[in-house]
Every structure is written in structure tokens, then in C-alpha cells.
Design a protein around this nucleic acid. Structure first.
Length: 258
DNA sequence: AAATTTCCCAACCGCGTGGGC
DNA sequence: TGCCCACGCGGTTGGGAAATT
């Protein structure tokens, strides 16, 4: 039996998109949107493509706000942190990163970040991991470790010393000064090794706070973002913020969670 | 310089879900 | 209430580029 195909595979073109197809799709979507129906859209746009393929091409490549490659350390930290909490919820993770797609984040994780972390895990024999190019990766005391969701737990088993990161509040919110919890738990600035981001990190570190009077929240190693304080004293801190649960590093202030 | 291997990313595939009827 | 359909997502694959031998 199996699933009914979404389109006639013999009648649609597959494989890489040509510039002409890109232009046809782009101009159609910009003029009409997807029309709420990707399945019928290719025909209207004069494309011999499956609707799913059109949707993917638009979302992952043609959308005007897409950024490709060039992941920053801050973005690395966000991905690692969110992955530790959410598992492979790539769309959710990507939604927290301006201009990134789930496919991009997924590919980046699978081809680079995961290997980097595995290498770090293999190299570690103690609490901290050292890497010439990456920040040392922390290990949270067992008592403070979060209780991960099933998927995250499964993945966390891969990186037992790497993914014990405080829980990120994942409910919907918006904030112009979104700061991502990198939560590298260690003695000193985790980014200092490559000198990449500690300065910017410090700039708005005070946006973060523990939700439980400074204790690691909820008794389960949970941190919450205190957006009530967002923007209050950006730039006031002269170093990264150290909290009982770890360190928090800011992202590009233009990033926002929606 | 050529052959081979590895890496990376765009695209595909199929399943789960939710809305409409 | 159940079925159908389209959307969205996560996993996987194929092919080109880059690196290595």
C-alpha cells in the first residue's frame, strides 16, 4: 500500500533548481505568496516541480532573509544549548536564529558541530574539555543537571559531559535583546580561547538572571530568561555573567525569539 | 597531474499532524 | 466521527567541491 505520492513523480522535474526556475518561483511567491496551497502553486507558477519541492526551495534558499554558512560562536552556543534541551527539533532551534533554516541548522549540526563535540568528548577525561579552537565544554554537577525530554535524553547520552546544560525556557516570547544561554559551565570565559566573543558577550550579560532567587531554578537545574530586565543596563557588565547554573552569552541583539 | 577520499549541502522521502468537510 | 488532503518536519541521500594521496 504505502502512502499516496504528493505528486506524479514521472511528471515533475527533480534535482537541482535552475536559475530560471528559481526566478519563476521567486517572482510568483513575491507577487502572490504561496496562495496557501503549495501543491497547486507550481502549476500556477509554470513550474514542473512538486509542490513540496517548491516550498522547500523557497523556505531554504529563496526567502529574502536567508543566511547561509558562517555560523558564529554565538550561534554554535545557541544550537548546542537548544539541542541539549529539545533534541533534534531543528525547526524550533532554527526559529530562534534569525535567517537560519531548519535544514541549515541540521546540516551544520550533523556535519560540524556534532563531530566537534564528539571529538571533545573523546578527548575529555575529566570535567572539562579543551580544544584549540573551541571553548572548553562544561559539565554540570549531577544535582543541577536538567531533566531532558526523551529525545534530548537519548542524545545527551551521546555527550554525557557536554549536554548537561540548564533548561532553556522555550515558551513563546519576544525580546529585542534576546540572549542565548550558552551555559558553558567552567571556571573562566569559555570563548576566551579563541578570543572571539567574550567582549560582546559581556555587553549584555546582565540581561540574564536565575528565576529562583539566584538558585538554579525549580530545583531541576532550570533557568529562565528574565526579559523584564532586558535592556536595562546593557553594556554595564565588564565580563561574562556567571550564575549558579553557568554562563550566559548574548547573541546579536537584533536576534529575537518569536 | 590524476585518482581517490572526505566533506558539505541541497534536495528528496515519508511520516505525523491538523484542518476542513 | 472519520476520512482526506496539504503542510511541516526530521531523517536520509546524491552529487559537487575540496582536500588528500
Amino acid at each position: 500500500m504505502g502512502r499516496t505520492p504528493c505528486c506524479d513523480k514521472a511528471a515533475v522535474k527533480r534535482g537541482p533548481w535552475s536559475p530560471e526556475e528559481d526566478e519563476a518561483l521567486r517572482s510568483y511567491v513575491q507577487r502572490h505568496g504561496s496562495g496557501g496551497n503549495w501543491i497547486s502553486m507550481p502549476k500556477k507558477a509554470g513550474l514542473k516541480r512538486c509542490g513540496k519541492s517548491c516550498r522547500l526551495r523557497w523556505l531554504n534558499y529563496l526567502r529574502p532573509d536567508i543566511r547561509h554558512g558562517g555560523f558564529t560562536d554565538e550561534e554554535d552556543a545557541v544550537i548546542i544549548s537548544l539541542y541539549s534541551q529539545l533534541g533534534s527539533k531543528w525547526s524550533l532551534i532554527a526559529s530562534q536564529m534569525k535567517g537560519r533554516t531548519d535544514n541549515d541548522v541540521k546540516n551544520y549540526w550533523n556535519t560540524k558541530l556534532k563531530k566537534r563535540l564528539l571529538a571533545a568528548a573523546a578527548a575529555t577525561t575529566g570535567d572539562l574539555v579543551s580544544s584549540p579552537t573551541r571553548p572548553r565544554v562544561p559539565r554540570l554537577p549531577a544535582a543541577l543537571a536538567p531533566t531532558p525530554a526523551s529525545t534530548a535524553a537519548a542524545h545527551a547520552s551521546l555527550f554525557p559531559s557536554l549536554l548537561a546544560i540548564p533548561t532553556v525556557k522555550t515558551e513563546t516570547y519576544t525580546c529585542d535583546d534576546f540572549l542565548a544561554p550558552a551555559a558553558w559551565l567552567q571556571d573562566d570565559d569559555p570563548f576566551a580561547a579563541d578570543g572571539s566573543t567574550s567582549a560582546s558577550a559581556a555587553s549584555s550579560a546582565s540581561n540574564w538572571s536565575a528565576d529562583n532567587g539566584g538558585a538554579v531554578g525549580g530545583g531541576e537545574g532550570t533557568f529562565f530568561l528574565d526579559f523584564g530586565a532586558a535592556g536595562s543596563d546593557l553594556g554595564a557588565a565588564d565580563d561574562h555573567l556567571q550564575l549558579p547554573g553557568g554562563y550566559y552569552y548574548p547573541l546579536d541583539p537584533s536576534l529575537s525569539l518569536v
